[in-house]
Amino acid sequence: MKKKTIKFNNMPPVLWMLAVGIIVITVIAPSFFAINNFKNILIQVAPLLIISIGSTMVILSEEIDLSFGGVISLSTVLWITFLNLGIPMFLAILLTLLAAAVVGAISGIIISKGGIPSFIVTLGMASITSGIALVITQGSSVYFSHKFFYIFVNGEILFFPIPLILVSIIFGISWLLLYRTRFGAQIFGLGGNRDALSLGGIDKSKSIIGVFSYSGLMAGITGLIIASKIESGNPTTGAGWEFDAIAATLIGGTSFTEGQGGIGGTILGVLLLIVLRNGLNVIGVPPMYQSGLIGSMVLLAIIIDVYVSNYKSERVKV
């Protein structure tokens, strides 16, 4: 009986926000509610969902990763640069993803071994990675042409868009990692009660390094998708993605305290962000207005979420 009420209470407000958003946009612009547009939305979901899965795992462990933007930019630049050096496609992808994961691992090592707040380490890392991307490209874009780019973004297997298949596989793997492995249990443990984790003889720093490497890897994969889309590497293309990823995570009901939430809610958070953006486009709001509008709505959604959970925890205390 008690369990049931707790579950109901934990239902994220994102569900009704999503419903209200879809209804309002459909009323203003009926063309939003079309199968073709839904397919569009699903394709747009892919890169943001991948990065947000990484962000969710980091936040579940009560840390934060602000370096996504820099790592994404660096990944696009590295990949294209490797290809320009004549490295074969498969190897170039592998090297790029390895580099992204290594950046995450370095952050994780500094955070766990040094005991430094993760926001400052990853903020510094964001600056370093985008600086490296700037140095490699000398401030401009690098280009390469290959049919793989088009297939990667626009291809379909049995009517399923390839980005969607990719994100489904990544979600499946991440779900298994989180809920079916020791590593996953340790992530929730980091967010829940760190002292208990140490008492249980678990090496906290290993799990932290693991989480940050994984989120670095996610940033790398997102970088590959973005680079394929713009068919180039650009040292500033990732800017702002870290905000979207964190926003999607928080709106999806994952909170910084007590390991609450999970990657399921993050899907809804990502959907809400993409629906809002797509909706504003369909309605015809100029791009210049969108970042301010979406930023405000996102901050409002986070405030509502925090407010609701504060209210609940105060009631529990009483």
Binding site: I64, F243, S291, L293, I294, L299, I302, I303
Partner: peptide, 29 residues
């Protein structure tokens, strides 16, 4: 946001940064 809502400061002010930047964009076109 930080004092009353107890949001982590870097989340609150990072979000504020994005929002404020967005409004600068709207104002300057």
């Amino acid at each position: 946001l930080v004092g009353k809502l107890k949001m982590p400061p870097f989340v609150a002010t990072y979000g504020m940064m994005m929002v404020v930047n967005g409004f600068s964009l709207i104002m300057m076109q």
